[in-house]
Design a protein around this nucleic acid. Structure first.
Lengths: 219, 219, 219, 219
DNA sequence: AATGAATGAGCTTTCATTCAT
DNA sequence: AATGAATGAAAGCTCATTCAT
């Protein structure tokens, strides 16, 4: 008699390995993580990992692909029904930090290890990251079309800047020895607030005119 | 001045190795870089590297320590004589990107490789990074004391957010296949502008108004 | 006769696997051939192979045993009715090369792979090979008794020499990129001719004189 | 103070490894031989082997190249001053067997393991083997020009046949449990004798005319 | 009988580090 | 100080074999 649901069975082991890998990668880093570490934590034999993944790199990439897919779906759900772009920015920030808080190990892996891949797995294009960040870029564009965000700002620059801000803060939170040192939720509001005001529309503060920024004197 | 001075001689080889290491790390990544690669590029024997550095990690850490020291000194010089905190923010952003542009290999190493070293992240305290960013936190605090930055914003959160924004954009610039795809200088202004407006108090001080940021020529 | 007979069924799968193994061994070599390759080519599951054979070595050995058995039976049939020992030599050579030509993959396996297995060489006694070659030794002995082959020649030495000659030429033919480069049949005559003359007694019997060997069309 | 002769020093370790490899390959076969086996026997570390050879294959190929070079030089010296082609054949056979006798392990490696490479290292052309055998082909051609060897025999076919005969006998000698079971020297004479007579020239044995060889009846 | 998912031992190769010269 | 040959630990991956179904 076969298992109740072989597909489910397979999925279980696949996921089992991925979850073990996330923990191990987060703990020791991708390069220091051994396949045998992942296997042991997943409760399978070393060779079994190669039944589900081509190699160690493939494990990392699959983590990225699958987990980012969930993240993207999640942020879309979180934004559903919200019409105010500025409110969307706040929700995005909070959602991001919520995920970091709930999936600390995953956050570590995605933040740090993936950059390695991004750079060294030459052929790999992190489409999923672009898709996730594209959600933010779309918010910005909608805000610009709605007149609440200045149209002269490049959505892509804002996208990277916003993500970089969130990412760096998440990193510091992850690295912090006392994890409760600061509240990610409150921080989300701070960051969202600064960006919202910074991107905000055409009504410039009264009585001020931009100064020419001085050129930086090179050292 | 003849190069006979032994101390000078030593320093020369020390720097020679570090500069070679920066190039090699940037090219192949820390883990794929071999000591023999560095030695060959520096024109010394493999063993010689161990006369100047404890091990491979030490080479990376020393790069960080020494180069961040220079970076810190440089940003202080760049900010000298500027009194307006908002202007300082702009200068900081421009200075940061100028360094990235002028020292691409170093930027790659500091941005990516350093984060990869778990040793670095979990045991090593990057005091120099804190010192560099502390310059920005001080700007914020001065702005708050001067009433041009809202006092309810946490300078540390702003510091990490600002650095994260700069860092992420620098990363994208470094990763971009066509390096001239977008102007880091214009982007510096955009990011600084958003933060300046975002952090601004309700009663703006004259001269703190951002300049028109130039639009990035497509991603 | 219906194929329902279980014994017959078993034999079918047994042969199916052996034939698949011959192809795979010839293609990739014994060591590079995977059990799963053989299973796939035979259209059975990996595990099924272990129902018919003890292990991978056993597959190779069984190929040898069974195919050599057929070879031996075949050469005996080919020699049937021939009385002249010298003519038998010629027939043997032609028969051998005909088999190589008709069963190229099998020839490759028997020639090359079998020798590689140290197990085969040092623990296994290739009785079947001795039996096959024994046919030739018998021819020689009969020739010596009949006075057409010099009695001072050791039949075993001649046996190995003759087989070695045939085998080496077959190997070159198998390895040749252009398989039609030379005719194995003509070469069979040349080799047989040299051995017949070389072994001939001083007072030749009529009819033992070799035919003109055809010249090989370039190497 | 450097070693007396660094080149000599290097050569020593190079040769040390090759000689160890010959023994190990002969004992366990190429595929079952582990690099660590070779290293242990050579008295060096595993990694040292990779300072002198690219990989395991390269060790085998180098054995072939270098040892065949010596073999070729040796057979030429052995043939020096001999003018009679038939005598040359005898000397060649004796020389070959002498080498097998004196370098049993090497003979095993060259005979068996090399065929694997020959077949599977697709790009590899065993030029040295052709060069060695070419010496024999030349003898045949000279004999044909001198009228002592029938001109209708293809020198290449004879070359492979002769080598195959020697090789097979050498193999049996190597495999024989009682190594003194038969004298290679006497056997050399037998084989040479058969070939010499078999190849011999235009004076056919009196009173005999070649019969048409019957066509082999296929099984 | 048949399956094929799972196992885990086995081995080549790399490269940071050492140390005799 | 400098060299660079030598070291040897370490680990990713393969694949013959097993066994629960």
């Amino acid at each position: 008699m076969p298992p109740v649901d072989p597909a489910r069975e397979r999925t279980d082991k696949h996921d089992l390995i991925l979850d073990a890998a996330i923990d191990v990668f987060a703990e020791k880093g991708f390069h220091h993580a051994r396949i045998s570490d992942i296997a042991r934590r997943a409760g399978v034999a070393d060779g079994t990992i190669y039944l589900y993944f081509r190699n160690k790199d493939d494990v990392l990439l699959t983590i990225f692909e699958e987990k980012m897919g969930i993240l993207i779906a999640g942020v879309r759900v979180a934004l559903e029904g919200i019409t105010d772009p500025m409110q969307k920015v706040r929700v995005f920030a909070r959602y991001h930090f919520r995920q970091v808080e709930d999936h600390r190990a995953l956050a570590e892996v995605l933040q740090i290890e993936l950059r390695l891949s991004n750079k060294f797995l030459k052929e790999y294009r992190p489409e999923k990251l672009w898709e996730y960040l594209g959600v933010f870029a779309t918010i910005v564009r909608e805000g610009q079309e709605g007149g609440v965000i200045r149209p002269d700002l490049d959505p892509f620059v804002l996208m990277w800047a916003f993500f970089g801000a969130l990412d760096e803060i998440a990193m510091q939170w992850v690295l912090a020895k006392r994890r409760d040192k600061f509240s990610l939720e409150a921080t989300a509001d701070t960051v969202a607030d600064v960006f919202i005001r910074g991107m905000a529309g055409m009504e410039p503060t009264a009585g001020s005119e931009p100064s020419r920024p001085r050129t930086v004197e090179e050292t």
